[in-house]
Simulated scan of single mutants.
Amino acid sequence: MSAAQPEVPAGRIAQMRQAFTMTRRTDRALPLYMLLAFLVVGGLFVGLSLWIFGTGVLGIIMSVVLALFGGTLGALIIFGKRAEKAAYAQVEGQIGAGASVLTMLRRGWVTKPAVAFNRQQDVVHRVVGRPGVILVGEGSPGGVRQLLSSERKKHARIVGADVPIHEVVVGRGEGQVPVTKLVKHVRKMKKAIKPAQVTEVVSRTKALDAMRPPAPMPRGPVPTSMRGHRKAMRG
């Protein structure tokens, strides 16, 4: 166990370095923003420390320590936000981008990519959570709407009338949700069922999936999960 422990921080540093490199490719101003955050937040901590501890030896020592801590924290926060924005930009427009982004939903959400798919590469993903069943469509507006309508009828027959079914179309057209705002949009949906019902609904949807052949993911460059990218940003 002791031999494996040193690999953990090294792995985290490597992940953060990789995330930084990937982000800088599309965000050249990232180092400047991180430096500004370090200086501004660090300066605020210096002022606060001197106000609390005074200008003596203790005050100077605490100012240096808190400035380094606060500045580093501020820089990491800016890094995380801009890295997440860059990650969204990299997957937007790619086939399966919605499924990739939906993996960022954590505890309390159950995501099933590609529950329905057609030859035109339109695809529907499913998310189950406190708002109920959320069907997320990607592709051409007409094809996606037909898929969503079909899936809504299938899910309505098994989840029950008391479980809401929501439809979301990923895109930048009217009535659509950009992939950059998809997770936030889903999280802001009004809670309508209890946690115990979520478990029951997940079981019922699994039964529905078992009654039909699995839908293959569309051909083309499917972006990798953003969960690992975000984990790297957190360190």
Rank of each mutant, 00 (worst) to 15 (best):
residue 2 S to Y: 07
residue 3 A to M: 09
residue 5 Q to D: 09
residue 6 P to C: 06
residue 9 P to R: 10
residue 10 A to G: 04
residue 11 G to A: 07
residue 11 G to D: 00
residue 12 R to D: 06
residue 13 I to Q: 12
residue 17 R to G: 07
residue 19 A to H: 00
residue 19 A to P: 05
residue 20 F to E: 03
residue 22 M to N: 14
residue 22 M to R: 13
residue 23 T to M: 02
residue 25 R to V: 04
residue 26 T to Q: 04
residue 30 L to D: 06
residue 32 L to Y: 07
residue 32 L to V: 08
residue 33 Y to H: 08
residue 33 Y to N: 05
residue 34 M to V: 09
residue 35 L to E: 02
residue 35 L to Y: 03
residue 38 F to N: 04
residue 42 G to F: 04
residue 45 F to G: 02
residue 47 G to V: 09
residue 50 L to A: 14
residue 50 L to D: 11
residue 50 L to S: 05
residue 51 W to Y: 04
residue 59 G to M: 03
residue 59 G to K: 01
residue 61 I to A: 13
residue 61 I to N: 02
residue 62 M to L: 14
residue 64 V to P: 01
residue 64 V to N: 08
residue 69 F to L: 13
residue 70 G to T: 08
residue 70 G to N: 06
residue 70 G to M: 08
residue 78 I to D: 15
residue 78 I to S: 12
residue 83 A to Y: 06
residue 84 E to A: 15
residue 85 K to C: 05
residue 86 A to H: 00
residue 92 E to L: 05
residue 94 Q to W: 00
residue 95 I to W: 02
residue 99 A to H: 01
residue 99 A to S: 09
residue 103 T to G: 07
residue 104 M to S: 04
residue 105 L to H: 06
residue 106 R to V: 00
residue 115 V to Q: 04
residue 115 V to R: 00
residue 116 A to T: 00
residue 117 F to S: 11
residue 121 Q to N: 11
residue 121 Q to K: 09
residue 126 R to Y: 13
residue 126 R to S: 15
residue 129 G to D: 04
residue 129 G to C: 04
residue 132 G to Q: 13
residue 136 V to L: 03
residue 137 G to F: 10
residue 141 P to V: 08
residue 142 G to A: 10
residue 142 G to V: 01
residue 144 V to Q: 01
residue 145 R to S: 15
residue 148 L to R: 05
residue 148 L to A: 11
residue 150 S to F: 05
residue 150 S to P: 02
residue 151 E to H: 12
residue 153 K to G: 04
residue 160 G to C: 02
residue 161 A to W: 04
residue 164 P to T: 11
residue 165 I to V: 05
residue 165 I to C: 01
residue 167 E to K: 07
residue 168 V to H: 04
residue 169 V to E: 12
residue 172 R to N: 15
residue 173 G to I: 14
residue 173 G to F: 10
residue 178 P to V: 04
residue 183 V to C: 01
residue 183 V to I: 01
residue 184 K to M: 00
residue 184 K to A: 11
residue 187 R to M: 13
residue 189 M to D: 03
residue 189 M to S: 05
residue 191 K to M: 09
residue 193 I to P: 00
residue 193 I to M: 07
residue 194 K to V: 09
residue 199 T to L: 12
residue 200 E to Q: 14
residue 202 V to E: 08
residue 209 D to M: 10
residue 210 A to W: 03
residue 211 M to P: 00
residue 213 P to V: 12
residue 227 R to W: 13
residue 231 K to H: 13
residue 232 A to D: 10
residue 234 R to E: 06
residue 235 G to S: 11
